[in-house]
Amino acid sequence: MSDAAGPALVVMGVSGSGKSHIGAALAAALGAQFLDADDLHPEANLRKMAAGVPLDDHDRMPWLDAVAAWIGAGRARGEAGVVACSALRRRYRDWLRAAAPELGFVHLAVPRDELDRRMRERRHFMPPSLLDSQLATLEPPAADEDACTLDGTRPMDENIARVRAWLSTRAAAKG
């Protein structure tokens, strides 16, 4: 399925980067379906993270399968979609791309001190003690990946405008 139905995007980054907030706003701006991938975590993953234990690849794969299935089902229906999903490693992004080869990634980059502040100010299953584990796992998108990196501390409207501009450039390049 091409982008003719609208984009398929993953808003990615570590916990506290603003994925859900920006992802929901981006989906609304694009008229796309929205999924917070946290909603697909198995209960065992949520318990593990709440206990301050980082997830490993064994924990993440069923979750990534569920996210990929949601993306693939939406594309099969011809829907645009935006998913807020950490997608911290390239191999996780490649796994998601298998569901929709045209999948693009919006990476939210936020300084560590700001991430820590945000995580301490919210109620979430992911405790601030796991921030360093998330940062150690993060592999920012490489130059050959279809990705747009945003400063996650910038105003929402500015970041939405940057994604729209990137999507226009991306569409023009694909012809």
Rank of each mutant, 00 (worst) to 15 (best):
P54F: 10
K48H: 05
M156A: 01
D157H: 14
E102H: 07
R47I: 03
D151Y: 01
A37T: 09
D144N: 11
D113K: 09
W70Y: 13
G52I: 05
V82W: 14
D113R: 08
D116E: 14
I160W: 13
P141H: 03
L35R: 15
A68R: 15
D116L: 15
D39G: 06
A66M: 02
V110D: 13
F34M: 10
A32S: 07
R118D: 02
G72E: 14
W63S: 09
D132W: 08
D157F: 03
C148K: 06
R154A: 01
D132E: 14
P140C: 06
E139Q: 13
G74I: 05
P111Q: 07
G81K: 15
I160M: 11
Q134D: 11
W70V: 04
I71D: 07
R120K: 15
D59S: 12
L138T: 13
L96I: 02
L135Y: 04
H124G: 11
A66I: 00
G152P: 00
V83Y: 09
T149I: 01
D36F: 07
F34Y: 13
A98F: 02
A109L: 02
D65P: 03
L135P: 06
A98Y: 06
A66E: 00
G78T: 11
Q33Y: 05
R112N: 09
L130F: 01
R112A: 13
A68I: 00
